[in-house]
Write a protein that binds this DNA or RNA. Structure first.
Length: 827
RNA sequence: GCCCGGGUGGCGGAAUGGUCUACGCAGCGGCCUUAAAAGCCGUGGCCCGUGAGGGCGUUGUGGGUUCGACUCCCACCCCGGGUACCA
């Protein structure tokens, strides 16, 4: 299936390059001719070099749904410039390429238009690969992979089995998110405000037996290891991941409920407010609620439960809504005070969080207070915060204060009150301190065809049996054997022949698992595979991983802030524990590139403001488009295509090309010392901005250098050393133009493989500095002074220069910051 | 509501305690041209002045620290993104 067809598409020259005679002399700046010429020459060249320090420059790989768009243009321009610069600075650079090629669009195209997912996917991969190469990407095609290749998903299955052996992959029945449109289950992370992240359909709940990865076991490590990422990942990404994991410290407290043998446990972050608990609430949709309701209250409860079930997720989650609930006719006992409090069912308590039941402390929790006021339940202050009485104001007081009406806790503050309360319940055996997380286990089964089959066999006698490693991959059955029509069950179940297998354990008749894996499983380890391309004996080689990991940087969009990054971090840790990987964090630095928008808004079909990347490349050329993306703003910011000028970028590139030609055709000129010094400073500054990936400023400095050298050349000076540096510094942004200009300079080899220029330190030493003389903070004069000038000498000169501005007034003080500034402060 | 990011010319953006607006786009004036495009030169806060020059103002708002603040501190306003009954 597919794999062999998918490997290394378009590795050799493509159609658009045909017809150009190699070596033809190009006389005017014609981007397309230059592109064709150099693309053919670059064929297969990578950024690898032997014996140098290794760097791994990684971009999030793309889903092959059609051709490249403007967003790809942005991320690829950034990544390629970074990778090329890193290489020119002397590193051995791994810059891989691949496709995340399993997933719903292929299958939906199959259902809608009858296209074979295999054919559809690999045709798109070929199109995108062609465009990718044309865009000038210096990627190493020997790393190429597509997650739908059997030789890739074989290892996806292999890794699943390793996690299965460790108990990190398991099956259980539970209520899951279900998308009625896509007819599949969704992970928590794929439900956005109650809707399917992919198609926007309202998500419903279903009770199904599904496969999960035990990511919750890693919750604390996912949190702790963010220390390694602090300052290297965007703060917002770290904040969102912390939020998502949702660590919460508190206590479990057991409440005896009359007429029930077992106590009911609640989770609370405020065990110190136990004496303020005036009622007890159970999630209306939890089985516990139905169990606890007493006979006479049952009709009211059933009516309420139906009313809640009829609400949409959106309605239910609205915080504006009035609190609703129903009394269950039963009472619970406070384990500290012994107080008897009524048990209610309500929908503001969530069945899935904590234990699905809470102790309500209306005085110190806004939600509980709202509920208490709606049902006229008592409000008892147990922490004096100095704020007005919640029962009167309707505003709960959550701050610190002194405990009152709290028995043994009286007089304590919030922190020691919490500790004391935990100590008391632990001693009494009715509770314990704990930490809980919002994070749920990762639901990985999908009832769809176009994904990696889960390598498990269900045997009536042996149960869940792993497919032996030597029988991997479990190949997808051909589409001709499968009914792809969505019907809520796995399409693989209709492949009758494929389904029936011998149990690997007992040899009896058994059936295959019919679910496929979430495509986020595929993308949780591809960056490992890239390090050991083409290996058929292992998923990846530990020595290769030790060479390359972690990736520095990882470049991609904000849409993967939680999903992909959290899953990949989990995988890396799980594989670290299996001793398969040597690092605990795969991505040492994360860059979220901005989006390409148009007229202030995201491009979309409905707005009709889309810009076609192919069209822009046709009009302006690859280099001009790349430079436009990079020059517009820092990588993290959005680029509004209505505000930028690819034509302007093209003009600059043409001037570089022209200058290289002019300089290349003259000899025997002398270098102008002033130009030389100015150029050295610009080279130095450009390098500094590149290191900090401020590509927009680096381009600006290159433009200044172009202007400077043009003037020098026109004045009859030798601009060659400067232009040779300039052309090399342009190479990461505009590789085609740089290599062409390099040739016009009559230089050896390629600019794109030359060393990054360095400024002669002797030229960076300044022999004269402009000193600003301020009077009362205003610039009044400028002096040319030696950089080593002493404070006293400078003060003297400055006072003289400022005499006119001082005008005989009394000088209070003179601030001297030699050699750059003197400020004369008047009384 | 909470969390994160941001507010500098007509526009994208430079500048992280010391000359605000680098570089570019757009505009305006000029050269070249029969004309246009392209290219090149000049110009870029406001006011006065033919000019040299001078006066005033200026980084969302208000305050503070400092000889000096886009930059640091406090309060607020606005914009963008994320998240939301998580006990």
């Amino acid at each position: 299936m597919g794999g062999a067809r998918g490997r290394r598409p378009c590795h050799r020259g493509s159609d658009w390059a045909a017809g150009t005679t190699l070596g033809a002399v190009i006389e005017s700046y014609d981007p397309h001719a230059i592109e064709a010429r150099w693309l053919a020459r670059w064929d297969g060249a990578t950024l690898r070099r032997d014996g140098a320090e290794k760097r791994y420059v990684l971009t999030m790989f793309s889903y092959p749904s059609g051709d490249l768009h403007m967003g790809h243009g942005e991320v690829f321009a950034i990544a390629d410039a970074w990778a090329r610069f890193t290489y020119m600075r002397g590193y051995d650079v791994l810059f891989p390429v691949g496709f995340d090629s399993f997933g719903l669009p292929a299958e939906n195209a199959a259902i809608k238009r009858g296209a074979d997912p295999v054919t559809w996917t690999y045709a798109n991969i070929r199109t995108q690969s062609d465009s990718y190469r044309r865009y000038g990407m210096a990627a190493d095609w020997s790393t190429y992979l597509a997650t739908s290749d059997p030789e890739y998903y074989r290892w996806t299955q292999w890794l699943f089995l390793r996690l299965f052996e460790k108990g990190l992959a398991y099956r259980r029945e539970s209520a899951v998110n279900w998308c009625p449109q896509d007819q599949t289950v969704l992970a928590n992370e794929q439900v956005v405000q109650g809707h399917c992240e992919r198609c926007g359909t309202l998500v419903t709940k279903r009770t199904l037996t599904q496969w999960y990865f035990k990511i919750t076991e890693y919750a604390q490590r996912l949190l702790d290891d963010m220390d390694q990422l602090q300052g290297r990942w965007p703060e917002s990404v770290l904040a969102q991941q912390r939020n998502w994991i949702g660590r919460s410290e508190g206590a479990y407290v057991d409440f005896a409920v009359e007429g029930r043998d077992e106590p009911v446990t609640v989770f609370t972050t405020r065990p110190d407010t136990l004496y303020g608990a005036t009622f007890f609430v159970v999630a209306a949709d939890a089985p516990l609620a139905a169990e606890l309701v007493t006979g006479e209250q049952r009709p009211a409860f059933e009516a309420y439960r139906e009313q809640v079930a009829a609400l949409t997720e959106i309605e239910r989650q609205s915080t504006e809504r009035e609190k609703t609930g129903v009394f269950l006719g039963r009472y619970a006992t406070n384990p500290l005070s012994g107080e008897r409090i009524p048990v209610w069912a309500a929908d503001y308590v969530l069945a899935e969080y904590g234990t699905g039941a809470i102790m309500a402390v209306p005085a110190h929790d806004q939600r509980d207070l709202d509920f208490a006021r709606a049902f006229d339940l008592p409000v008892r202050v147990v922490v004096e915060t100095g704020e007005p009485d919640p029962a009167e104001t309707g505003v709960a007081t959550a701050g610190d204060g002194v405990h009152v009406n709290s028995g043994e806790l009286d007089g304590t503050g919030k922190a020691d009150g919490v500790a004391a309360a935990i100590a008391h319940v632990e001693q009494a055996g009715t509770g314990r301190g704990t930490v809980i997380y919002r994070l749920r286990d990762w639901l990985l089964s999908r009832q769809r065809y176009w994904g990696a089959p889960i390598p498990i066999v269900h045997c009536p006698t042996c149960g869940e049996v792993a497919v032996p490693d030597d029988q991997l991959p479990v190949l997808l059955p051909p589409t001709t054997d499968v009914d792809l029509t969505p019907k809520g069950t796995s399409p693989l179940g209709t492949a009758t022949e494929w389904l029936q297998v011998e149990c690997p354990s007992c040899g009896g008749p058994a059936t295959r698992d019919t679910d496929t894996m979430d495509t986020f499983v595929d993308s949780s380890w591809y960056y490992l595979r890239y390090c050991s391309p083409g290996r058929t004996d292992v998923a990846f080689d530990r020595a290769d991983l030790d060479d390359w990991l972690p990736a520095l940087p990882y470049i991609g969009g904000k849409e993967h802030t939680i999903l992909h990054l959290l899953y990949s971090r989990f995988f890396t840790k799980a594989l670290y524990d299996l001793d398969l990987v040597g690092v605990t964090e795969p991505f040492a630095q994360l860059v979220n590139q901005g989006e390409v928008i148009n007229q202030g808004r995201g491009m979309s079909k409905s707005l009709g403001n889309g810009v076609d990347l192919g069209g822009e490349l046709e009009t302006h050329g690859v280099d001009a488009v790349r430079v436009t993306m990079l020059f517009a703003s820092p990588p993290e910011e959005d680029v509004d295509w209505a505000d930028v000028s690819p034509a302007g970028a093209g003009k600059w590139l043409k001037r570089v090309w022209q200058l290289a030609g002019d300089v290349g055709s003259v000899d025997g000129r002398a270098v102008d010392p002033a130009t030389e010094r100015a150029a050295a400073h610009l080279i130095d500054e450009t390098t500094g901005h590149m290191v900090e990936h401020r590509f927009n400023v680096a381009v600006a400095r290159c433009m200044e250098l172009t202007n400077l050298l043009r003037k020098a050349h026109d004045a009859g000076h030798d601009a060659r050393p400067g232009v040779e540096a300039l052309v090399r510094m342009v190479a990461p942004f505009a590789p085609y133009t740089a290599d062409e200009a390099w040739e016009r300079l009559r230089c050896e080899g390629w600019a794109t493989r030359a060393d990054w220029p360095t400024a002669d330190p002797a030229l960076l030493v300044v022999d004269s500095v402009t000193c600003v003389v301020q009077v009362g903070g205003k610039v009044r004069a400028r002096l040319e002074v030696a950089p080593q000038i002493g404070e006293d000498a400078l003060r003297e000169q400055a006072l003289e220069a400022a005499t006119e501005w001082i005008g005989g007034r009394e000088v209070r003080t003179v601030v001297v910051r030699a050699p750059k500034l003197v400020n004369v402060v008047l009384v």
